[in-house]
Amino acid sequence: MSTEEWPLFEVFIRSRAGLEHKHVGSLHAADARMAIEHARDVYTRRQEGVSIWVARSADIVASDPEEADALFEPARDKVYRHPTFYAIPEEVKNL
């Protein structure tokens, strides 16, 4: 790895007020200020952004797909968390 290689940053854009930031891709930059500018130049040319987050890819912590079963499967059978699980008579309003 040469000394000139710029680190990788992940880019998150909020496209409109009211929406959350969404991951749109990655880019290389030497520092955070440059990363913001690059993100602006690459990912908001078509007015797709009101706010930019950048994070060094090395700092992102991700769940391990191997543990997907343990992490996510238990939620699958807890259908009582979903409103459709409950039978409410039609005459009852506002529920």
């Binding site: 710029w6 880019l27 290389h28 930059a29 440059m34 500018e37 690059h38 130049d41 690459v42 040319r45």
Partner: peptide, 11 residues
Amino acid sequence: PELEEDLALAN
């Protein structure tokens, strides 16, 4: 000097 700068200068 870098692809990202191509885009910046074009802007």
